[in-house]
Simulated scan of single mutants.
Amino acid sequence: MSILGVESVLFGVDDLALHSRFWTDFGLPVESISATEAVFRLASGSRIILLPLGDARLPSPDPFDGNGVKLTVWGVDNAENLERIAASLATEVAVTRDAEGTVHCVCPDGQPIALRIWDKRPVTSAASPVNTPQTQPRFNQHRIWRHKAIPKTINHIVFFSPDYVGSFEFYERHLGFRYTDHSKGVGIFARAPGTFEHHSIFWVNCDLPIAPDHFKFMHIAFGMDDIDEVMLGANLMADKGWKNTTMNTSGGISRHRISSAIYYYCEIPGHGGEAEYHADTDYLDDNWVPRAWDFKFGSLLWAASPPAIFRGPDIAWDMRFDADRQSFDPFRKAASGKRPMTGELSRLTQDDEHAL
């Protein structure tokens, strides 16, 4: 199995009190909050750790300016697999270990990562059966009554990459990640080998007009039980004054076509990326056949008010199975640097970003 998913994520923040309040309101269970750090631990055992910008526990040099995820720590199932991964990484990049035995390196795209042994916890989770006009599995039974949103897992994390095909292939080569789906020209979805969620990481193409020209954190997604819990969280965050990054574009809550997931984004303070409530995604294993999608067709199944580029009668079915990875070739980078986009991808704007 080896990598079981995200063990912890370290954020660098400019206002520890403000960011601690954001994540508390978001529903993350508090483990500890002090003047120098805040730690939140989810039911799976995954942690969100907030540290002041410039803290010695954060990677140096800083992978990008400002607030956001500075280090992703992947959890490994046992010592033998950790050693195997460390040896593989060392054939291509410099590898170090800290006093606790955690393995550290920087990926070719500029992403700092770490790996450590992780005793991942089983999660207790429940959703109400869904009635239809033909079948009523919830007969004489009310839906689960929820009071607030409680994220259970870290489902995935997303970064802008200057070479998104190369970023995936590095993870595949050394960490054993599985290719799941490709939104052509936008990015690649990949799954850690010890998880079943549709993707554990997504790399977004830095060539897009919405993107920076360098590695940067985009968003992090948390697993919720159902659409009710997602909407409850959205309402409560709005009541507390936190911004929804898609309120004026995709109507707040939407569903992707590629991964089937229902989603809602909240803006992390200080332009620190986004936090996503995430439910009803596809779950899969190594029998899955990867697919390549046109970005317009794959992005949205529905939204309350989808951006113009993702709606209309001309959104044609455009998906093919891609086990041979032929879809990768037009997007491989022979050299570093941002390439100008052509065609419909060049018309993407910041308003379209979170529908991708």
Rank of each mutant, 00 (worst) to 15 (best):
Leu4Gly: 01
Lys216Pro: 07
Gly337Asn: 09
Ala238Lys: 12
Pro193Glu: 03
Met341Pro: 14
Lys152Thr: 10
Phe202Gln: 02
Phe331Lys: 06
Gln136Phe: 13
Asp77Ala: 01
Phe222Arg: 04
Arg291Val: 11
Met1Lys: 04
Ser200Met: 04
Ile33Thr: 09
Val93Tyr: 05
Lys120Thr: 11
Leu208Phe: 00
Tyr171Gln: 11
Thr132Asn: 08
Asp318Ala: 07
Ala94Arg: 05
Trp242Ala: 05
Phe40Ala: 08
Arg143Pro: 15
Gly27Met: 07
Met224Arg: 14
Arg57Glu: 08
Gly66Lys: 00
Pro212Ser: 01
Cys105Thr: 06
Asp318Lys: 13
Phe22Asn: 08
Thr153Val: 13
Leu232Glu: 15
Glu80Tyr: 03
Ala335Phe: 09
His271Asn: 10
Gln326Asp: 15
Lys216Phe: 00
Trp317Lys: 15
Gly272Trp: 00
Leu53Tyr: 00
Ala192Arg: 12
Glu169Ser: 07
Val93His: 04
Leu300Gly: 06
Val103Trp: 02
Arg84Trp: 03
Ser44Thr: 11
Pro162Met: 05
Asn287Trp: 13
Tyr265Glu: 10
Ser336Arg: 13
Leu284Pro: 14
Ala56Val: 04
Met224Val: 06
Gly251Leu: 08
Arg178Gln: 05
Ser167Tyr: 00
Val73Thr: 09
Ala238Trp: 12
Ile262Lys: 13
Phe64Met: 00
Lys296Glu: 13
Asp228Ser: 11
Lys70Gln: 01
Glu92Phe: 01
Val103Gly: 03
His214Thr: 03
Phe40His: 03
His219Gly: 13
His256Ala: 12
His199Thr: 05
Cys105Lys: 01
Ala149Phe: 09
Arg311Pro: 15
Trp302Tyr: 07
Glu31Gln: 12
Ala316Phe: 10
Glu276Lys: 11
Val13Pro: 03
Arg41Ala: 11
Ile315Tyr: 02
Pro29Glu: 05
Trp242Ile: 08
Ile262Gln: 08
Phe11Met: 06
Arg347Met: 14
Ser299Gln: 13
Asn287Phe: 13
Thr72Gln: 03
Glu100Asn: 12
Cys107Tyr: 05
Leu58Pro: 04
Ala99Phe: 10
Pro108Ala: 07
Glu344Lys: 12
Ile258Gln: 14
His219Arg: 03
Leu4Pro: 01
Phe170Gly: 01
Asp294Tyr: 08
Asp109Cys: 01
Arg116Leu: 09
Asp119Asn: 13
Ile188Val: 07
Ala127Ser: 08
Asp226Met: 06
Asp280Pro: 15
Thr96Ile: 03
Leu28His: 04
Ile220Lys: 05
His214Gly: 03
Ser250Glu: 14
Ser254Cys: 08
Glu276Tyr: 03
